[in-house]
Structures are given as C-alpha cells and as structure tokens.
C-alpha cells in the first residue's frame, strides 16, 4: 500500500443544522487530510462536532458546503445510491454498541456487507471466516450476537468492518461499552490491523484511547484545535 496516498480529504467543510429557527454550525470550515496507513484518533467533548465529522468521513452524510474527497472522489456530489456503494466498498464501521444484527448469526453478520457487494454465497462464507479468524474469533461463529460477550461482539463487528478490505476503518467509541481490560485488547487489535497497513480513524472522547494513536485530531466548536 502506498503510505503517503491520501485516503480522505476535507476542504473547508461546513455543516449546518436547523433547530427550530436557529441554525447550528456543527462544523465550521473544517479541513482535514488522512493518509493511507495512519492510525488517527478524533477527540473532542460532546457537542464539539465530532459525531458530525464522523458521519461525513463515513459517507453517511453530506456537508452543507465544502468538499469531501474519498480516494479522489467528491462524495459531496453523490446521491444516496452512490454513497451506499462507497460505504460498502471503502468504509468499515465499528460502533460503540457493536450494532450486530440480532437475528443473524455472527458469520451471517460478517457476510452482510459482502452480500450487498454482490459476492457469491460460497465465496462470502470463506471471506467471512477469514476475517473472523483474523480478529481471533474462529469459534462460536454460528452463535447469535446475544450469546457472545462484549469483547467478542466487538471482535465480530471489527471482522465485519474489515471483511470488504475497505480503505478506511471508522470506529466510533469502540471501547465505550467495554471494561478497561477488554478495551485494551480491542485497542491492541486496532494496532495490529494498523501494523498490517490498514487506515484507521477512531472517534472518541476518551483521552486514554486517543493517546494510543499516532495522530490525534482535537475538535472543539466545529473546528480543529491546533
């Protein structure tokens, strides 16, 4: 992987929300560049705009103004269908609450993004098993998420995030629902994945988590703190 390749670039991004008659500037001219192979943390208190930032980086939302380039493509110009395709191919999400689909088995959960990518069923299973092995969850893959511990659920979620080999893994408070020891293990897993060359962005309000990352971006009042 080209180490200096720009994965995502935000140029003077503004995001406004209408709250009744008031306009809230969640992001107020934010610029940012994340390169391939980086392990970045975005830290800020609640209300700082970091969630909005994460939604825009994750291609879940479009900015009010400014541009967002993901691997050179301007996502601020894309429609819902194109955005869903970008999310499927280029972004792997890891959530605080794991967000596994409760009715599906762990294996089926990991297969889901591949299904939307149009991968054949037989190939899908193999790829999902490989991803689960990589996060150390080779067993219990036919269990439902409710039968797993928090740490195991987060491993499954990480397996689901890496299964499509996305350009960017975007984790939102990935250790927030875990105890300290388990959180440590999950952070080690992120480091391991980063050492293998994956680009990872962790959004958090936890300084301890943030300090384990090589690059820290602080957000306050919709702007980057220098």
């Amino acid at each position: 992987m080209d180490v200096n390749k720009v994965i995502i670039e935000l140029e003077n991004v503004r995001k406004e929300y209408h709250m009744g008659d008031n306009i809230v500037n969640a992001l107020d001219g934010f610029s940012l560049q994340i390169n391939s192979g980086e392990l970045t943390s975005i830290i800020g208190p609640s209300g700082s705009g970091k969630s909005t930032l994460m939604n825009i980086i994750g291609c879940l939302d479009r900015p009010t103004s400014g541009s967002v380039f993901l691997e050179g493509n301007d996502i601020s110009l894309m429609n819902d269908k194109q955005l869903s395709r970008i999310r499927n191919h280029s972004i792997g999400f890891v959530f605080q609450q794991f967000n596994l689909l409760p009715r599906l088995s762990i294996l089926e959960n990991v297969e889901t993004p591949l299904m939307y990518a149009g991968v054949k069923a037989s190939k899908r299973k193999k790829m999902a098993e490989d991803a689960l092995n990589k996060v150390g969850l080779g067993e219990r893959i036919s269990h439902k998420p409710t039968e797993l511990s928090g740490g195991q659920k987060q491993r499954a979620a990480i397996a689901r995030a890496i299964v499509t080999s996305p350009s960017l893994i975007l984790a939102d408070e990935p250790t927030g629902a875990l105890d300290t020891a388990t959180g440590e293990i999950i952070m080690n897993l992120f480091h391991q994945l980063n050492n293998e060359g994956r680009t990872i962005v962790i959004v958090t309000h936890d300084m301890e988590v943030s300090e384990k990352c090589e690059r820290i971006i602080r957000v306050r009042d919709g702007r980057m703190e220098v």
Binding site: N99, L101, T112, P113, Y116
Partner: peptide, 14 residues
C-alpha cells in the same frame, strides 16, 4: 436501527 446498520454496511435503498 436494523435498517440504519444495513445502510451503514452499504445496503443501497433498492
């Protein structure tokens, strides 16, 4: 929520 998760994973509206 399930719909939200599926969308995040790349499910197109169709």
């Amino acid at each position: 929520r399930e719909i939200g998760i599926r969308k995040a994973l790349g499910a197109p509206p169709s």
